[in-house]
Write a protein that binds this DNA or RNA. Structure first.
Length: 460
RNA sequence: GGCCAGGUGGCAGAGUGGCGAUGCAGCGGACUGCAAAUCCGUGGACGCCGGUUCAAUUCCGGCCCUGGCCUCCA
């Protein structure tokens, strides 16, 4: 039994899909106007774990969109003096590389907003027809007052909302809470012909149209960052429910924010760390583990200590795997092994990844202690790792592969080790220690064993 | 101001009405030329004030604090 915290209702609930043969999940993806930061990566990673978990039990169709038409993209293009499509394409490519580097399996569908404009126009038409929307000065607006359940997801009522609103109220709005479905485009802006003139869609509309197109009117799980609950998801619900006469999603899941210092990581705050720059220094797998070290709903403070501890954790697990591989030459016999029951239970409990990592650590300890057969134990560890999206690298490679950048090559390291071995044989330990220290400063740790000296890389 | 999360040991972070996960760090020991790695052992916690209970970190109430949303935002 999988249980999930449902923002709609504010409680953990048993997961019961509408159709067990076709479970559907939609997660709001990025708007592509610049390099994505590690905060953007959290939902991608978290819902990737959920997708892996769901696939154990169900046939899943997982869609995650990319918003490639947006005023921020227009602005970025104008600033650089390049076509809008160039900006969008560049950052779409970057985004895909970035999350692939974090071990995120490609969603089944990755719809682009610009490829679904006809569907969006259709949605607006039906909302106009049913009286849930109105035209005003080239815009089409959603009439919030026409949807009684508005505010259900975010838990706010209309009065509070108006009281707290600092929104600039466009004069053509019937009600300050009304939001844009379609807006007019000038000639230099991207635009599509529509019954209301040349224009472009409002942000919220995209997700409603794409979710409908790829997954159906009522989907099982809709995910995204907590900061999207209002207004984005609230508006999606309003549009979709009014257009389709059916709920948009059964379960709404929201991940907590990544923090840097005292506030959330956000471009507007100026405290972002891009996935790109992080990956120059740290393997993507370490970043992934760091993202999974807290529960997905909680905020996560991003620090150097977090990265260091994540790296150590992973090193430890890989070391066990490495030793197991050495012990049981005949690997391959334990290939299609199931992850441990405890690990699966932890994840099925609203994606309790910290507990799952605890299970992995315990399994590793048992392997160390020799109470489990190495090949089978290692296979189980890897199977558990797969659910989390870690531990799939060859252990030997894990410790010797170089990060990007000018690091010491393997040949050079081997040569220095040979040199050191001669010094040790000659009893010149001072010189030998110098070499070890020097390599250590360059991120290479030497370990002397009965079989000779081995080396591995570590975080600098 | 309104709404929503959360406050656990040096740090990160699970969990539970009574038996104190897990990782990193620390301490003692084994191993090692010395280290590293590994192994054995070990100390240390539940924001504050009340209440319920035989028993509360865990349930209830109040307070304090932190973060998120109310505007673009993963």
């Amino acid at each position: 039994m999988i249980s999930l915290y449902n923002t709609l209702g504010g409680e953990r609930q048993p997961f019961v899909p509408g159709d067990a043969d076709r479970v559907t999940m939609y997660v709001c993806g990025p708007t592509v106007y610049g390099p994505a930061h590690i905060g953007n990566a959290r939902p991608a990673v978290v819902f990737d774990v959920l997708a892996r978990l769901l696939r154990r039990r169900y046939r899943l169709v997982y869609a995650s969109n990319i918003t490639d038409v947006d005023d921020k993209i227009n602005q970025a293009a104008a600033e650089k003096g390049v076509p809008i499509a160039t900006v969008a394409q560049r950052w779409i490519r970057t985004w895909r590389e970035d999350i692939a580097g974090l071990g995120v399996l490609a969603p089944d569908r990755q719809p682009l907003a610009t490829e679904h404009v006809p569907q969006m126009i259709g949605l607006v038409k039906s909302l106009l027809k049913s009286g849930h929307a109105y035209e005003a000065e080239g815009h089409v607006l959603f009439r919030v007052g026409a949807y009684a359940a508005y505010g259900e997801l975010s838990g706010r009522n209309r009065d509070e909302q108006i009281a707290g609103a600092r929104v600039e109220v466009a004069p053509y709005k019937e009600d300050p809470a009304d939001f844009v479905l379609w807006k007019p485009s000038s000639d230099e802006l991207p635009g599509w012909e529509s019954p209301w003139g040349r224009g472009r869609p409002g942000w919220h509309l995209e997700c409603s149209a794409m979710a409908r197109e790829h997954l159906g009117e009522t989907i099982d799980i809709h995910g995204g960052g907590r900061d999207l609950i209002f207004p984005h998801h609230e508006n999606e619900i309003a549009q979709s429910c009014c257009a389709h006469g059916a709920p948009l999603a059964r379960y709404w899941m929201h991940n907590g924010m990544i923090r840097m210092g005292k506030s959330k990581m956000a471009r507007s705050v100026g405290n972002i760390l891009t996935i790109r720059e992080l990956r120059e220094k740290v393997p993507g797998e370490v970043l992934r583990l760091a993202l999974l070290s807290a529960r997905y709903r909680d905020p996560l403070e991003w620090t150097d200590e977090l990265i260091a501890a994540s790296r150590q954790r992973l090193d430890r697990l890989y070391r066990v795997l490495l030793d197991c591989a050495a012990e049981s030459r005949e690997e391959g016999l334990a290939q299609a092994v199931e992850p441990s029951v405890e690990l699966v239970q932890a994840l099925e409990d609203d994606l309790n990844t910290p507990a799952a990592l605890g299970v992995l650590a315990r399994e590793a300890r048992e392997l160390r202690a020799g109470t489990v057969e190495p090949a089978a134990g290692a296979a189980s560890l890897k199977a558990g790792g797969f659910l989390l999206g870690i531990l799939q690298t060859d252990p030997g490679e894990w410790f010797t592969a170089a990060e990007s950048g000018p690091e010491l090559g393997a040949e050079e390291i081997e040569a220095r080790i040979g040199e050191r071995a001669r010094q040790r044989e000659a009893g010149d330990y001072a010189a030998a220690d110098r070499i070890r220290k020097e390599l250590g400063e360059r991120g290479v740790i030497l370990e002397d064993g009965p079989q000779g000296t081995t080396w591995r890389r570590t975080a600098l």
